[in-house]
C-alpha cells in the first residue's frame, strides 16, 4: 500500500509539480522548436516518453549492477581477481559516458524496431527519433535515477525508476502539447515584431510555468488523503 501511494506521488510530482520542461528546464530545444502544431507536438511527446522509459530501464540496470558504489558485479570481479575485500569498488566516474551511449543506442534500437515492426507508428513519430539523442530530458531522467542509487540504505527499485521516467515523459508531452495549442492561436495575434518566434514562446512558457506552480502542494495534500483513507 505504501509503495503504491509512493509511486502515485512520484508520478504526479514528475508529471505536474516538478514538470521536466517548466520546472527543470530540460528539453527546452524541442519545446521551442517542434511546438508549432498540436499533432507533431504530440508525436514528439510520445517518442520522448517511449525512449525515456527504455533509457531509464537500461540506465537503472547498469547503475544498480555496475556503476553505483559497491555495486555487485565489479565487487565480485574485484574479489575474484584477488582484490582487498575492504576496498569499496566505485565505477561512478564512468556514469556519464555510459548514460550518453545508453541513450544513443536505445534511440537507434527503438528507431530500427519501430520501423521494422510498426510502420504506421514509425510514420507518425519516427522522424523525431534521431533528434531525441540530444534531448536533455532523457539524460536528466538517467541522472535523477543515478542520484537515488548512491546511498545503500535507500536504493530505488526498478519500479520507482520507471515511474519517474514515464511521469517525466508524460509531463513533457503535456507541456509541449499545451504550448503547441497556444502557439497555433498566437499565429493569429498581433505580436510585436522583435518578440516574434522564440521571444513570445518563452514569455508564454513563463506564464505556463506560473500556472504549473499552482500544482505545488498537491503532492502533500494527496499524501495526507491517501494516508487518511488507508487508516
Amino acid at each position: 500500500m505504501e509503495t503504491i501511494s509512493n509511486l502515485i506521488l512520484l508520478f504526479i510530482s514528475a508529471a505536474l509539480i516538478n514538470n521536466f520542461v517548466l520546472h527543470y528546464f530540460v528539453g527546452i530545444c524541442p519545446f521551442l522548436g517542434v511546438s508549432r502544431k498540436v499533432d507533431t507536438a504530440f508525436g514528439m511527446g510520445c517518442a520522448v516518453t517511449f525512449v525515456i522509459s527504455i533509457a531509464a530501464f537500461l540506465s537503472w540496470t547498469f547503475t544498480y549492477y555496475i556503476l553505483r558504489p559497491a555495486a555487485p558485479l565489479p565487487t565480485w570481479v574485484w574479489q575474484a581477481a584477488g582484490g582487498d575485500a575492504a576496498v569499496q569498488v566505485d565505477l561512478g566516474v564512468l556514469s556519464y559516458i555510459v548514460y550518453i551511449f545508453v541513450i544513443a543506442s536505445s534511440v537507434q534500437f527503438v528507431e530500427m524496431y519501430v520501423r521494422k515492426f510498426f510502420p504506421p507508428l514509425y510514420k507518425s513519430f519516427g522522424v523525431y527519433l534521431p533528434l531525441i539523442t540530444t534531448n536533455c530530458a532523457i539524460l536528466f531522467a538517467c541522472l535523477e535515477i543515478m542520484k537515488h542509487l548512491q546511498d545503500p540504505t535507500k536504493l530505488w527499485g526498478l519500479h520507482e525508476a520507471l515511474t519517474l521516467a514515464i511521469g517525466g515523459g508524460v509531463g513533457f508531452t503535456i507541456a509541449i502539447v499545451l504550448m503547441a495549442g497556444i502557439r497555433t492561436e498566437l499565429d493569429l495575434c498581433d505580436v510585436p515584431k522583435p518578440l516574434k518566434g522564440a521571444g513570445i514562446a518563452l514569455i508564454v512558457a513563463g506564464i505556463l510555468a506560473m500556472a504549473f506552480m499552482g500544482f505545488a502542494g498537491v503532492d502533500k495534500g494527496l499524501a495526507i488523503a491517501i494516508s487518511s483513507s488507508a487508516q
Binding site: 528546464f25 522583435p194 514562446a201 513563463g206
Partner: peptide, 25 residues
C-alpha cells in the same frame, strides 16, 4: 520572488531576446 523561480527565467529570457532582436533591427 517570482524572479528566482522558473517563470522568472522564462520571462526574463523572452524579454531580453526581444530587446536583442529590436536593437539589431
Amino acid at each position: 520572488g517570482i524572479m528566482a523561480l522558473p517563470p522568472g527565467a522564462f520571462l526574463t529570457l523572452g524579454i531580453l531576446l526581444g530587446i536583442a532582436e529590436w536593437v539589431s533591427s
